[in-house]
């Protein structure tokens, strides 16, 4: 059974690169534009991993992270692996992990680096 990964990023070019990279490894993908849409998908779709950008319209990646780690969906997503990505120079890896993210990847990232992080999470999970 292939793992399902939810991608939240408002930049179409970034999503395309992720899509091509992840599909190559056989993952199943769902793509959304922002945090609010991601929350809607998570409500009724089982997902194994979330990859989210920070700066997005409507709901940022950090707001999404907070909601999931609090009790959105009755606490069902407290354990969901979440990778936060950002191009912001003030996004600090340690702070974001302390806030509840499973891992942090700075943008722009190499696809191989991202695949490595994903594989590591799934090995541990």
């Amino acid at each position: 059974m292939p793992k399902t990964i939810l991608i939240a990023d408002d930049n179409e070019a970034v999503r395309t690169i992720l899509r091509l990279s992840l599909q190559f490894k056989g993952y199943k993908l769902i793509e959304v534009d922002d945090g609010a849409q991601a929350l809607a998908v998570l409500k009724d779709t089982p997902v194994d991993l979330l990859i989210s950008d920070i700066a997005m319209p409507n709901m940022t990646g950090l707001e999404l992270l907070d909601k999931l780690r609090a009790d959105a969906g009755g606490g069902a997503h407290k354990q969901l692996p979440i990778i936060i990505c950002s191009a912001e120079s003030d996004a600090k890896r340690d702070n974001i992990i302390a806030r509840g993210a499973t891992d942090f990847v700075a943008k722009p990232y190499r696809p191989l680096e991202m695949l490595e992080v994903i594989a590591k999470i799934f090995r541990q999970g």
Partner: peptide, 19 residues
């Protein structure tokens, strides 16, 4: 930053997949 993302992500993709 958005420009950098848009230009570098594909470039990294090309380099990694050639590898």
């Amino acid at each position: 930053k958005k420009n950098i993302e848009e230009l570098f992500q594909p470039l990294y993709f090309i380099r990694d997949f050639l590898e």
